[in-house]
Design a binder for these strands. Sequence first.
DNA 1: ACTGGTATCGATACCGTTACCGATACCAGT
DNA 2: ACTGGTATCGGTAACGGTATCGATACCAGT
Lengths: 313, 313
Amino acid sequence: MTASRALRGAPDVSRENIDKVERAARETGYVGNPLATAFSNSKSNLIGVVVPSLNNIVFAEVMSGIAQGIDGSGLKPMFGVTDYDPVKEFELIKSLLSWNPAGLILTGLDQSEETRDLLSVAAVPVVQIMDTDGDALGAAIGFSHFQAGREMAQALIARGRRRFGYVGCGLANDLRAGRRLEGFKSALDAAGLALVAMRHDPEHSSTEAGRRITAEILHAHPDLDCIYYSNDDVALGGVFSCLAQGIAVGDALLLAGFNGLEMTRTLPVRIATTITPRRQIGFAAGRYLVEAKQGAPMRPNHKTVLPTVLSLP
Amino acid sequence: MTASRALRGAPDVSRENIDKVERAARETGYVGNPLATAFSNSKSNLIGVVVPSLNNIVFAEVMSGIAQGIDGSGLKPMFGVTDYDPVKEFELIKSLLSWNPAGLILTGLDQSEETRDLLSVAAVPVVQIMDTDGDALGAAIGFSHFQAGREMAQALIARGRRRFGYVGCGLANDLRAGRRLEGFKSALDAAGLALVAMRHDPEHSSTEAGRRITAEILHAHPDLDCIYYSNDDVALGGVFSCLAQGIAVGDALLLAGFNGLEMTRTLPVRIATTITPRRQIGFAAGRYLVEAKQGAPMRPNHKTVLPTVLSLP
DNA sequence: ACTGGTATCGATACCGTTACCGATACCAGT
DNA sequence: ACTGGTATCGGTAACGGTATCGATACCAGT
C-alpha cells in the first residue's frame, strides 16, 4: 500500500519512503498495470472518440487536436467510426462505455433517443463536438452550422449576389450540412430571395461529384451568380469544373464552400468559405476531459461556441 | 464458471445450459466487463495504432481502413500520434504495451533501437504498415517507397522528360519521402541523368509551400520539364502555382506527386502520381490482427507488398 | 504518566473474470 | 456389480492494483 500510494503521489507517505519506492521502481523497471488499476477503480484512463467518418481531413484534424489536448495527461484515446449510422453509433458507444472510460467525445448533438438514455445512465463525462444547434447531453464544443450557413448567405448577398444555387454531396444523414443549408436558405428568405437551383448527390467521392454536378447545374442554369456547396471538398470540384470550362470564378460566378481547408487559400482563384476551428474543437474537447478527470465540475448542457471566420474573395 | 463458458462459447457446456445462460443474460441486461476479462487474461482486446501525423488525409484513410478491417471482431483501436518523433514513438508504444494489447499497428520500419528491443520482449503481434524497405519486426504491409520513386522516374523518362526538379516539403525525418527521392534519383542516374534542381522546405503547410517553392524553382530554372514532389499535397500547390502563372501543366512542364489523392483526378490539368493502396493497407493490417487474435500463426519478418499504380497524364 | 491528536503504515478485502482441477453423472463393456 | 471413459459442472484461487480501516509511533499539553 505504501508503494502504491507513493507511486501515485497520494498523501500519507513520508518523504523517505517516497524516495525509497521511487528508487526501487527505477531499479526494477517497474511499470504499473493500467488494466489492474482500471479494474480496481472501475474507471479507466481511456477515452472514447466517436466520429462519423475518416475519409475527410476534417475529422482527422479534430482527432489530431484531441491527441494534442490530452497529451501528457495519461488519457489514451480509443476511436470508432459510425459512417453516419445512428445504430452503429449506439453500438459503438455501448462498447466504449463497457471500458469504463474517463470520458467520451461524440460528434454532433443528434444521437438517437436510445443512445441518449444509455449516456444519461452512465456517469461519464461527455463532450459533443462540432455542433451547438440543439440540446447538449454534456458539454458541447463547436459552432452553429445554421448560423454559419446564414452568415455565409448574408455575406454573399451583401456582395451583390442574387441568383443562388446549392450543390450538396454526401450522405443524407449528414445533418450538419443540412442545417447549414437551412441557415443559408433562411437568410435568402429574409432578403426576399430563394435558391434558384439545388442539386444533391449521395455519392461518396465528393470532389469528383462536385465537379460533375457543378457542370450540370451551370448547364441547366447558366445565369447563376453564386453556388453554395455542402463543403470545401465539393466546392473544389466546382472550382475545377469552372477552370476546365474557362468560367471566371469569383467574378461572374462566386463559389462558396465550408470548412476553410488550407487548399482553398492556395487555389489560383479565390472562393468563399467558412473557416472552422477544427483543431481547436478537438483540443478543447480533450482538455475538458483532462480537467474532468482532475475533478473539475461537469458542465452538463453547457455550450462552448467557438468562432468561425468567413473568408471571402 | 458455466455461465462464463456459455457466454464465451467455450466448450464443455450443455446446449440446455447455454440457452439458460443466454436467456438470463438477456433478461438481466448483463454485459461483460472487458476490463475484468482483460485483467484476468492479461490480454486485452485493444489494439494500438501509431501514426506519425493526422494532418494529412493519408493516415486518416489508413485508420479508416483499420476500423473496417477489425469491424465485428471485438477489437478496439487506441491511437497515438508521434509527430515523426522517435522518442515520442517509443513512449507511446511503451504506454500502449502496458495495456496488454492484442496487437500493434505501427507506421514504417524505422523504429529506434530502443523501440525494437521493447517490442521484441513483448509477445504482441506487430504490423508495420506503409513501408517495406527494410527489416520488419513483425508483419510488414505496404510497398517500397524506393521502388515507387524509381518507377515514377522511369515512367517520366520514358515520356521524354529530361530536366528534372524536386520539391519537398515536410519534416526531414519523413524517411519514406526520402526513400522515394532516393529511388527517383537512382533511376535518373541509371539513365545518365540527374536532378537539375532540388528544393526542400521544412514548413508544415504543404500545399502553400508547394505553390511558393514551385514558383521559386521555376524562376531559377525555367527550363525544367518535370518536377517531382514529395507528395500530392505539395504537387497540388505546384499545379496551382502553374495555373496562376499560366504555365501549361502536362505539356512543357510535367508535375508528378505521390499518393494518388482523389483530387489529382479531378483537377483541370492532369498530373502524374503514384496511387497508393492506403485503405487496403489499413484493412489488411486490421485483418492480420484479427486473425492473430483467432490464433493464426504470426508472420515475423513477413512482408506483404501491395501494388501501387502509376497514374500518368 | 496519561490523553488526544496527527502522521504514517500495512493487513485485509474486493473489483469481475477465467484457469485449473476435482467432482459428479452417465454409459458401455466385462 | 465394477471399471474406465466422456461430458458436464462448479469450487477455488489468482490476476495487480486500491479503498478502507485499524494499528502504531510520536508529540504536545496537562
